[in-house]
Design a protein around this nucleic acid. Structure first.
Lengths: 344, 344
DNA sequence: TACGGCGTTGTAATCGATTCCACGAGGAGG
DNA sequence: CCTCCTCGTGGAATCGATTACAACGCCGTA
């Protein structure tokens, strides 16, 4: 592969001049510029980003470490992150932690070794020393979706509090009183926050959240299934199951269906994180939708601000409730209402 | 960030010795090794991968350019690719082309600039000159899922021919005779092959595939919706719609539902590419499942073989039919059969 | 005692860029 | 006509690693 030296030789100038043309530095004669450009064209030369990074000490690359690529929420997040980064002239390297702290550390380490300019993280656990050290050492970093308390790193996330209140109000209006939640890992902020929001919202309606109605999941489908089975085995099973993410909702749906029960007639179901597929499940699932794309874009902007020496800001965007049929009828939704109601 | 020089100074040896310890070269005294290791520990030193890559001319990184991250099929592919690559000591940088040739080229160019060791591509179009040049120039490359004919690059893919025959036989047995397909872009191999396989399979049953029953999609949900609407507007609409990927199937489902029609009673639906959500749609969707994980792993192995100087092999794995309820009842599937049959 | 070989170590070149500094040519002003 | 400044250019240092080569000390053997 042709190097800058080859181009210099071909154009009959020094490498310094070639470099100047490539970085359009002002003081290059029109003649030299033309000759260099012609040589670049003739050789199909492309600058070696590795060498450039070594010299300039910047890679124009962002690292994104997410908890689970197979989760459509994170996929969408990754997509919007890459888009915004590209618009700002950066590339993105994605690391998938699969909800495993060791894998998360592996990716953080690899990204740091590659000298990425900044790190976007949705932490899998409460605090990998590696990440904390990196943050302290001055690596530009922004948390997205989940974060680690007590670390001086900007956070870009959605606030689901209001939406959870709307959800609980909706459920209460439908007559549900025994509500259970499939929680995420307590080590993650989204894991614990969603339970707290749920408990508070229930409290506002005068409803209690007993411990047996809090199932411990891990944001994966299988745990949703397991926890839901536990709920269904209870002497007094809940009337509603609220899954703290979409994958666990999928698992819950599996479990319910395996018992030969129906949603929402036998048990209602709702989820945090809305995804396109929820429109088409049987029944369509009521969910709390995050402004995922905005979150990704805001996170990149914050990180790039930090990298380029501007003051990054934390951002909190509201989530909103999207009512569908998985909790029962609420007086809206035309076509199938009559049929569903007559069955219940 | 500490460099190899700092470590050398701290340990009281030369950088050469430090490098030798780090790459565990045999001729280093136990004493020197211990001192270096201690210095590394004390300084929290990590080798700069950029500098190392410049010198050794290898990045131990694979590029993966896929057509659409939001498509669960490609997400799963990406995941398995990363896993296998990690097991072999490589990292992966994913580029999402979003089915756009210009974006695909952007990513290929960026990856090449970064001097990745090899490229895994699922091409969006029939032949980006950039990619062809790179292949000719000797960049290790492997096509996965889709490929470009006439290029000397190993291909790792699934053969859906038999599964499509099974599908058509299944549909025929259910009494369907007017079958339509939502095709992918003709520029992609999967786009054209699936139509051909479908046409052949129909032919074997003595059924014709008229042009009006071939809708042109682009592997995105929206096109599935549009094409399906066209089918439904036909004087004689098809009894079955077969979508060449899962996203277009989602769009088709949208379109059918928007008309107030029901699957499978009013129209049957099947898709290429099975995904976890198909179990939970209303109704569960009959699909052709690819061995996605195996495909990803085989592709990485082929690419790494090529990189490390072994002869890479093309791999073709069979896809298989997964029958669910979206095409009507086939004598299996317990719980809801009676109810569904009574409605038709 | 001298010499050959082995094990260990350091010096320095190198990868492909960027960029500081110096130098020469040419124009403006005194 | 000489001086000074600007503009365009090239030489060379540099980033952080790897590695060829040379050198050194030490041991065993002739």
């Amino acid at each position: 592969m042709a190097s800058i030296k080859d181009v210099a030789a071909e154009a009959g100038v020094s490498v310094a001049t070639v470099s100047r043309v490539l970085n359009d530095h002002p003081s290059v004669s029109a003649d030299a510029r033309a000759r260099v450009l012609a040589a670049v064209e003739a050789l199909g030369y492309r600058p070696n980003a590795v060498a450039r990074s070594l010299r300039t000490d910047q890679t124009r690359t962002l690292g994104l470490v997410i908890s689970d690529v197979m989760n459509p929420y994170f996929t969408e997040l990754a997509r919007s992150v890459e888009e915004e980064a590209r618009a700002l002239g950066y590339s993105v390297i994605i690391g998938n932690a699969d909800e495993r702290p060791d894998l998360q550390d592996h990716h953080v380490r690899t990204l740091l070794d590659r000298r990425i300019d900044g790190l976007l993280v949705s932490p899998t656990d409460g605090g990998s020393p590696l990440m904390l050290d990196a943050a302290r050492a001055g690596t530009p970093m922004v948390f997205v979706d989940r974060w680690i308390p007590g670390v001086d790193v900007p956070v870009v996330r959605a606030d689901g509090r209001a939406a959870v209140q709307d959800l609980v109000a909706h459920l209460h209006r439908l007559g549900h009183r025994r509500l259970a939640i499939i929680a995420g890992p307590a080590a993650t902020t989204t894991g614990s926050e969603r339970v707290e929001a749920f408990r508070e919202a229930l409290g506002a309606c005068g409803i209690d959240l007993p411990d047996v109605y809090i199932g411990q999941g891990d944001f994966q489908a299988e745990s949703g299934r397991r926890v839901t089975e536990g709920f269904l085995d209870l002497p007094e099973p809940p009337e509603v199951v609220f899954a703290a993410d979409n994958l666990m909702a999928l698992g819950a749906l599996d479990a319910v269906r395996a018992r030969g029960l129906r949603v929402p007639d036998d048990i209602a179901l709702a989820a945090f994180d809305d995804i396109p597929w929820f429109v088409h499940t049987d029944p369509p699932i009521t969910a709390i939708a995050q402004p995922t794309g905005e979150l990704g874009r805001a996170a990149v902007r914050a990180l790039v601000d930090r990298i380029e020496g501007r003051a990054p800001r934390s951002v909190t965007l509201p989530a909103r409730l999207v009512v569908r049929r998985s909790c029962g009828e609420d007086g809206h939704d035309g076509e199938n209402s009559a049929r569903n109601r007559s069955q219940s």
